[in-house]
Design a protein around this nucleic acid. Sequence first.
DNA 1: GATGAATGAGAGTTCATTCAT
DNA 2: CATGAATGAACTCTCATTCAT
Lengths: 243, 243, 243, 243
Amino acid sequence: MAATRPKPENRSQERREKILQAAISLFSEQGYHHSSTRQIAKAAGVSEGTVFNNFESKSALLEIIIQGFYERLRNTAQEGLVNKHGCKEQFDFLAENHICVISEDNFLLMRLLAVYFSEHFNFYLDYRNSSIFKHSKIYTSLFDQVIREGIARKELKEDIKLSAMRDLFFGSMEYGVRSMLAQLETEETELNQEKLKAYAHSLCQPIWQSMENSEDQRSKDNQKELNLCERLERIADRLEEKI
Amino acid sequence: MAATRPKPENRSQERREKILQAAISLFSEQGYHHSSTRQIAKAAGVSEGTVFNNFESKSALLEIIIQGFYERLRNTAQEGLVNKHGCKEQFDFLAENHICVISEDNFLLMRLLAVYFSEHFNFYLDYRNSSIFKHSKIYTSLFDQVIREGIARKELKEDIKLSAMRDLFFGSMEYGVRSMLAQLETEETELNQEKLKAYAHSLCQPIWQSMENSEDQRSKDNQKELNLCERLERIADRLEEKI
Amino acid sequence: MAATRPKPENRSQERREKILQAAISLFSEQGYHHSSTRQIAKAAGVSEGTVFNNFESKSALLEIIIQGFYERLRNTAQEGLVNKHGCKEQFDFLAENHICVISEDNFLLMRLLAVYFSEHFNFYLDYRNSSIFKHSKIYTSLFDQVIREGIARKELKEDIKLSAMRDLFFGSMEYGVRSMLAQLETEETELNQEKLKAYAHSLCQPIWQSMENSEDQRSKDNQKELNLCERLERIADRLEEKI
Amino acid sequence: MAATRPKPENRSQERREKILQAAISLFSEQGYHHSSTRQIAKAAGVSEGTVFNNFESKSALLEIIIQGFYERLRNTAQEGLVNKHGCKEQFDFLAENHICVISEDNFLLMRLLAVYFSEHFNFYLDYRNSSIFKHSKIYTSLFDQVIREGIARKELKEDIKLSAMRDLFFGSMEYGVRSMLAQLETEETELNQEKLKAYAHSLCQPIWQSMENSEDQRSKDNQKELNLCERLERIADRLEEKI
DNA sequence: GATGAATGAGAGTTCATTCAT
DNA sequence: CATGAATGAACTCTCATTCAT
């Protein structure tokens, strides 16, 4: 009996997972508003009541799916970061990971966020207190960590405005994905990962550049300073001579 | 009599405008999905049939409102650009204008775009063929023009990847606005224009930097150094005379 | 001026006719219920108000179109009957004419009658007093005339139940047309006139037969009588011999 | 408890039946187009949603009611045919049954068919594939069976064109009913069954006549002649004896 | 007589959610 | 804890008809 005890929990978990997967699949194919809870129940092979026994409401289901995506983003990011040493490597990896994960399930995360904001955005105070916002913060704080470490290691400038960098980083990728989708050739139906990664790179390049504590630049500046110093010294020499 | 002739046309335009304003107002306050066509008709002081005589459907109304915003963005941008000379000035102005206009009506444009994408985003081919996409392109091409002119005038580098810059520019502002809203102090209910402009500036700074022609900058720096040296030399000359 | 006087009337008549034709065309293509008065007005190139200045209501328009069909049926029948001599010829012609005319405009008459009956049939008293019923009676009375003349000329039996013949005649053709349409080969999109006429013929044959005052049958009877007579004569002969 | 188990299914069936009966009753009294689904729900004592949980749409409800009529026609016909021996008896019974059943509920079947054809008749391919057409075929094939058996038993001619007979049979009855309704005396509000059966008989007579095997009839005639001849011969014999 | 904007009741249908079983 | 029938408010949209111009 003890061996069978965990079963109910497992069954329960399986059911929950089935419903989630059914919802993800339907939302991805038809959109949130065009997928009814009845359809979700049917697709999950459970009754309509069961959906509501497992999830408070349809919009709660939406939130949980979005959270799941953020968790996935965070997990893949954290796992990947472990192997990356050096700030630039980590920075680039975060971008690649982000653009690849958000493109999953036909860009479902972005579409669901659009749904979420289309219903809740007016109530931004709600958003701030929402668990979605919290998950989003947890995830994006990985970016912050990477940058902060970069600064600490003097790889990056000290006077970086972090929030601006974050917005540039995540905002441009999400906006860029939309642009890319809209400009797909008619025959194409998908964006391949290589294309996405390459694009992510072209967006990150300027951001990185602006943060970089460039050795090159420092040495150039030093050179200029040296030249200036030399001239000033010559002036000083002349003054000395006069005195 | 001749003076009263134009009335019918005006009346018709007025009614249409009334409906649009009512819709904008309701969408802004309650969101698109929670504003019914009945409410809109009532708020506009017309019958429900009149709404549908003037607009094909509720979603057509949505599209027209979004288009209106893009037209407003383009018009204010075009008018403002006339007085701005110099690429940097224009670039900064575009950012300020963008962030100010999208913050109007409680960030209605962004919320309506979220609605639009939440329903249509899966069908990106639809989006590409939609009039909204066309309006958006017309507007964002102003940015392209400014950058291209900057390149032509050698103020900007030649090898700029325009689409990446565009996505950084518009994407970071829209993402940034969301972040700012989510982080408003509880007592605040609005973002004031100054704050917005300042933020736009901090987002634009790195983008500009990455595009700027460093040849230009170097010569400017050199110029400054030279000027400094000259002044010092003149000072030295005067000292020489005095002594 | 005297020459231009008739114009207004003509114009008015033209308008009316345009509206009628537009309605017929739309009803034929989309059905009565799916054709709005707005569409009709547009197709006729007039305003919506004009439709209602010329026809009391949409259903009045329907009735007038149905009446027009009955008039057409009557006119073509009357004109055709003039050249047909002999009851059988006229009878066959009526059938051919009927089936050909009702097949016009994609069987519009039948479809419009279905509309009419679907809305008014419950109120059969209304139907009896309606002008459609009157027109229908005027038309079908041509059949009655032909039969009555046939009886008068001894071509048809005296004890024919006219109403039953009429119902067999018109009922079977209309029902038969429906059957034929339902059993069209998939590649066919129309019933050609020859097929229709042939079918009309196979429906009419039994009806005619039942009414015919057959010469053939009389002659067969004569033959039998002759045979009988011959035998009697032989019997008489034998009697003569005996005597 | 076991006894109460089947309840849910029964309840469900009862509800469905209630809705059907409510719809039949309302359609019969007010016509299909003038009976709203709201009214039907109210009359059935259920909510509007329940109507649509049980029937896909209002027009599906229409189709199911029509199918019910066809089933009733078939069932009463099949049951009745069992007791009828001889082709003529069966043929007459089919006619009586048909005209009696279609006159039920104020001729609802015919009126609902009019509704159906008024909406779908243009799309005859749809009709052919519709379940209504199938039910109608199943029912009318009973007529075909009776006739084929009659042919097999040599009671009917071999060269009968079955489809024409079918169209004459069913077409004339339905057309005839319309005529009768339109010519009811004002004080009458119903057609009584005797009248209907008598009329059915007068429509069937010519159809039967045209199918009847004349061989059969001829042999009967011959028999009569033979009998006659025999009698004459007997008379002649007697005469011979006397002489 | 022509116009066509305005009407507004009413239609069919959807759907998240509840709750008795 | 699962079920799924029942709910009923709410939705967008249609359309014949009117009437001021």
